[in-house]
Simulated scan of single mutants.
Amino acid sequence: MIDVYTANTPNGIKVPIALEELGLPYRLVRIDLSANQQKQPEFLHINPNGRIPAIVDSDGPDGEPLNVFESGAILWYLGEKFHGLLPLDPRERVSAMEYCFFQVGGVGPMFGQAGWFMRQSSPIPLAVQRYQDESRRLTAVLEARLQVQPWLAGRSYSIADIMNYGWLRQLNYAGVDAANYPAVEDWLARISARPAVIRALAKLAN
């Protein structure tokens, strides 16, 4: 059994989606971010960085429980262990890795900062402009990729799509107009229609 410590956020939805796609049993443990549960000793034992999501796999590599934190590491671990959501083609596998790190190092931080600065009571225009521009640039990179490939890794739906979906489904949070990125819009619609994604989002919403 896999325990998933998470919340209904752009990063928090990734692991339940992946587990639903893989058809694996899991227990959803909701973390109340407003109450700072992610900073409490019990959670810091699982993730010393004090961020969601994190998992505890009761059947780790040596048969003992294994804690895994950071969404990219979790999805890669699940894909490796359960032989799904990682392309078999070696070139596509590298592409999946590239777009996972693209999200970790670019999309997540830039979208997050854009949304945060936009919503301050005393906005800092230079900061808003900087992070919105970068969010638009990153979305344009994905647009170019999705104009020539159905999925970010190539022909295969993978953890790369799940990683980026969490943030891209809320483009307006970062001040990005989805209408300017038709291939991204189509990609988002196809992911949103997947039964596993629908199930995961419904569980997180309840």
Rank of each mutant, 00 (worst) to 15 (best):
S122C: 09
S122Q: 15
L152P: 03
S122F: 13
Y77E: 09
A140N: 14
E98G: 00
T139Y: 04
S71L: 07
V94H: 11
V128D: 01
Y165H: 07
V176L: 04
V176H: 01
L152M: 06
Y165F: 15
R169Y: 07
P109T: 00
P87Y: 07
V107W: 00
Q103L: 09
G79A: 15
E80S: 12
D89T: 01
R91H: 13
R169K: 15
V94S: 08
W151A: 07
R137P: 08
G106M: 11
A160V: 09
V141N: 01
W76V: 12
P123Q: 08
A114D: 05
S121A: 15
L85D: 00
S135C: 10
F82Q: 05
Y77N: 11
L126I: 10
L85W: 00
A144L: 05
F117Q: 14
M118Y: 07
A96E: 13
Y181T: 06
W116R: 10
D89K: 02
I162V: 14
V176F: 04
D161S: 08
E134H: 00
S156W: 04
R137S: 09
P182C: 05
G106V: 11
P109L: 11
P150V: 07
I74V: 13
P109V: 00
E185M: 10
R119M: 06
Y173D: 00
R91A: 10
Y157T: 03
R169L: 05
G115P: 05
P90M: 07
G106F: 13
P87W: 04
A140V: 02
T139A: 06
K81M: 07
F82R: 06
A174Q: 05
F111V: 01
G108W: 02
Y99E: 03
E92M: 06
W187M: 10
I74N: 00
A179V: 12
L88H: 12
W187H: 12
L171K: 09
V94T: 08
M163I: 13
F117A: 05
R169W: 08
L146V: 01
G166A: 07
F101D: 01
L88D: 14
D133S: 14
L146C: 00
Q149W: 09
L142E: 02
G166L: 04
Y165V: 05
G108Y: 03
L85S: 03
R145T: 04
R119Y: 08
S95R: 13
W76G: 08
F102R: 09
E185L: 10
L146H: 02
